[in-house]
Write a protein that binds this DNA or RNA. Structure first.
Lengths: 249, 249
DNA sequence: ATTTAAATTTATCGACCGATAAATTAACAG
DNA sequence: CTGTTAATTTATCGGTCGATAAATTTAAAT
C-alpha cells in the first residue's frame, strides 16, 4: 500500500451526461470532442461497463458504447490498467464528502441524530449500482485502494462512532477496543449489506432506506447501551413498533 | 429462476485431498486417475482457482494446476460453463447442513442459545475463502443460484429468527413484517460482513469469531427488545462489558 | 505377450484480447 | 479557400481464450 490516495475535498466535476447506450450524437458521422470531454466520457462509460461486467470487460465493447473505435482509447490512456485506475479514483475518492467528518463529530447534536444524518447521506452516495459493484469487484481483485478505503472507514467512521457514543454515554474517553470496533462494523456492515442485496443480488429490500437505517440505529444504540451497561437517550420517536411501511406512523 | 436447486441432505462426498499447487504425484510422468477421481479433482481445483481469480480464469491454468493438459477438461465437462455449474453446486448446495433448520426452531432452548449455536455453525461453514468469494463472484455475475440462495436465507433463517423471537417474547404469531425482516437482515448482513472483511478485503477482524457473534447477538436481541417494546432474557453472561480479548472473562 | 478400451496428449482452429503504427479526416487559423 | 494540427479510423500484430479432432499411452483383460 505504498501509493498515496487522497479523498475528495470539493464536489466532483460536473460534465455533460451522455448516458445513451451508443453515443452517436445527433449530427454527422464522426463527431470530434475536446480531449477533456472525450477522456471524461471514457472514464464515465468505463465505470458503468466495469460495474456491470467486471474489469475483464473488453476495450472494444467500451469503445462501441461510446460510438468510437477501440484504438482511440490509447490516445487518452496508456493502458487499460490506467483507465481502471481512473475509475477507481472516481469511485473511491470523488464521492467522499468532506462534511461527513464533521457530521459525526458535531457534539451540539445528540448522537442518534448525527448517526441518522450521516448514514442517510453516506448511503445516498454509495448505494449506487456503479459504486457498490466497482467496490466489490475491486475488493475481489485485491486492489490497494480498496484496502486503503477500508482503513479510512475504520478511522473516520467507526472509530468516531465508538468515541462519540462513549462521550454521549458518559464513559471515559479511550481508544476503542477491538471488540467495540467490531460492534461498529456490525452496524456498518449490516447497513452496507442493504446495498449489496439491492445492487449485487438484485434482491428486493425495504423500500424506504431511511426507515431501514432508522430501525438499524435504534437496535444498535439500544443494544450497545444494554451491553455496555449504560443508558443513552437514543430513540428518535416514541417507542411503539418497528417503524415500517405497514405501521405508517 | 426456472432451474430447480436442492440443498444438501447428507454430508458432502469425501475424496482424497490433492491440494498441492501442481499435482504431479509421486511416481511416473503421466498418472491416470479414475474418471470419478479426475472429475472430482477438476471441480475441487476449479473452486479454489475461480475463488481467487474469478470465473474468467483460464482452463489452461486450471489444467496446469492439476498437472494435466487443457483439452482433458472437455472429456469430463462439455463446456467451461458446465464446470462452473458444478462448482456452484458444491458451494451453494453441499455445504448447507440440514440440522441448521432444526437448531433455530428448537423451542426447548432459549432463543439466545439457539442463535449462538446456529451462527457459530453457519459461519464455520461459510467463512471460508473459497465459499465467500465464489458466493460474491457468482452474485456479481447474476447467477440464478445466487438469487435462489438469498431467498433460502430469507425463508429458512431470517423469517424463522423473527418468528422465534416473537414467540419467545410472547408476541402474537404472524407473518414477519417487511421491516422486521429487514432487521433480521441487519444482523445477518452484519455477521456476514465479518467474512467479507476477512476473505474479500483481507482485512484484520476480531480474532475470536464466536466473540464477535456473541456480542452481535447481545446487541441485536437487546436492541429489538427495546424497539419492539418487549423484554426477553437475552444476555448469555452477566452484564459487564463488551466481551473481547482485553476483558477475558 | 497380445489385445482392447479409454485416459491423456499433441496439434490446431477461430474468436477475441490489449496494444501499436500508419492513414484519414474533421476542425480550425490564416 | 488553403494549410496545419490533432482527433479519429483502418489495419494489424502477438497472445490467449474455449473448444475440437486425431494421435498416443497407460492400464487392464485375455
Amino acid at each position: 500500500m505504498d501509493e498515496e490516495f487522497k479523498l475528495n475535498t470539493i464536489a466532483a466535476a460536473d460534465m455533460p451526461a451522455s448516458d445513451g447506450s451508443v453515443d452517436q450524437e445527433a449530427s454527422s458521422k464522426h463527431r470530434r470532442l475536446s480531449p477533456a470531454q472525450r477522456r471524461e466520457d471514457f472514464i464515465r462509460k468505463a465505470t458503468t461497463l466495469f460495474a456491470e461486467e467486471g474489469f475483464d470487460a473488453g476495450t472494444r465493447e467500451l469503445a462501441r458504447k461510446l460510438g468510437v473505435t477501440q484504438p482511440l482509447l490509447y490516445r487518452y490512456f496508456p493502458s487499460k490498467d490506467d483507465l481502471i485506475r481512473e475509475v477507481y479514483k472516481r469511485v473511491y475518492l470523488d464521492r467522499w464528502q468532506p462534511e461527513w467528518d464533521d457530521m459525526l463529530g458535531d457534539r451540539t447534536r445528540p448522537i442518534r441524530e448525527r448517526l441518522q444524518h450521516f448514514y442517510d447521506a453516506y448511503t445516498d452516495a454509495i448505494f449506487d449500482r456503479d459504486w457498490i459493484r466497482i467496490y466489490l469487484f475491486s475488493g475481489l481483485k485485491g486492489a490497494a485502494i480498496n484496502k486503503w478505503y477500508v482503513s479510512i472507514v475504520e478511522t473516520r467512521i467507526l472509530t468516531r462512532i465508538i468515541e462519540e457514543y462513549r462521550n454521549e454515554a458518559g464513559l471515559p474517553a479511550q481508544e476503542p477496543a477491538a471488540a467495540e470496533l467490531e460492534l461498529a462494523w456490525l452496524l456498518h456492515g449490516g447497513i452496507f449489506y442493504y446495498g449489496v442485496r439491492k445492487h449485487i443480488y438484485d434482491s428486493p429490500v425495504l423500500e424506504q432506506k431511511n426507515r431501514a437505517i432508522s430501525n438499524a440505529l435504534d437496535v444498535f444504540l439500544e443494544g450497545i447501551a444494554s451491553v455496555f451497561g449504560t443508558a443513552v437517550k437514543t430513540r428518535s420517536t416514541a417507542i411503539r413498533k418497528v417503524s415500517g411501511p405497514e405501521g405508517q406512523d
